[in-house]
Design a protein around this nucleic acid. Structure first.
Lengths: 132, 132
DNA sequence: ATAATCCCCATATAAACGGTAGGAATAACG
DNA sequence: CGTTATTCCTACCGTTTATATGGGGATTAT
């Protein structure tokens, strides 16, 4: 599986925020209820989105989250990346991973590089506003 | 990760067989040596390919495996599928999995269906003969 | 103060991943 | 018939990842 619940939850939070933009800060408990997800689990995704700068958070009563830019300026790729860390279809293409020692002679690597490009091209072409 | 060592090994076996077609049955130990993979681990991939009908096997001395069709009649997709079971980018699109109860209202499902199509279109367009 | 909210850290459970081990069945070959 | 090379079958095992859950601390509007 390339995209797990982490990425999907990140996306769900962002879609919900996009659908309720202009309402100030939206609390996670509201999002959890609408999206039928566990509040506790969504907290993880929301914090990652906040750390990545994709959303702005406000603590305390009547706090919550809101988008930091217009919805059409987010690509689906960057949202999923915030949840997943990597979207590479094979481990040898993950950034930060130990480079495969057979990379020079591997007969499959070029194929997977192409696949990665196809996937990223698609996910970069999709905007958050296309989903909300 | 969408494509693990299982799929990659299936592909490596097929590529090796394609490169040595016309030599009759090729033993797994030869393939393991050339591809620098464990014989024991490749056995799993080879058996799956055999069960799926992608290769023909012969037991006993001077046995081994060979392709059951010309190399240009295999898509990379079917080879990877034999190793992975599924290439779906999200679990809710895997065949045989319990259908997601929120499928009707899920705001992300259409996106992932599109992504799945993009991936499968690419992997179906690539032939084994392109890699060998 | 109080209640609502995000933030931080730790834990739990199950499944998947990446193999390994031992041996049975089969077939060629001398 | 015995040896050897091979696929086939079943089981196991340690590590990592996935999917969460729980408790409590920090912050802030009211």
């Amino acid at each position: 599986m390339m995209i797990t619940t982490k990425g999907r939850n990140a996306l769900k939070v962002m879609i919900d925020l996009a659908q309720h933009s202009g309402e100030g800060f939206v609390s996670l408990s509201d999002i959890a209820e609408r999206q039928r997800e566990s509040l506790k689990y969504l907290e993880t995704s929301a914090k990652q989105l906040s750390t990545a700068g994709l959303v702005v958070s406000a603590r305390g009563k009547s706090g919550g989250y809101k988008l930091s830019r217009p919805a059409d300026e987010y690509t689906v790729a960057e949202i999923l990346l915030s949840g997943e860390g990597s979207l590479a279809p094979v481990s040898c293409l993950e950034e930060g991973s130990a480079p495969c020692e057979n990379a020079g002679t591997c007969c499959t690597l070029p194929l997977f590089k192409e696949l990665d490009e196809v996937i990223m091209k698609f996910l970069n072409s999709k905007k958050l506003s296309d989903l909300a």
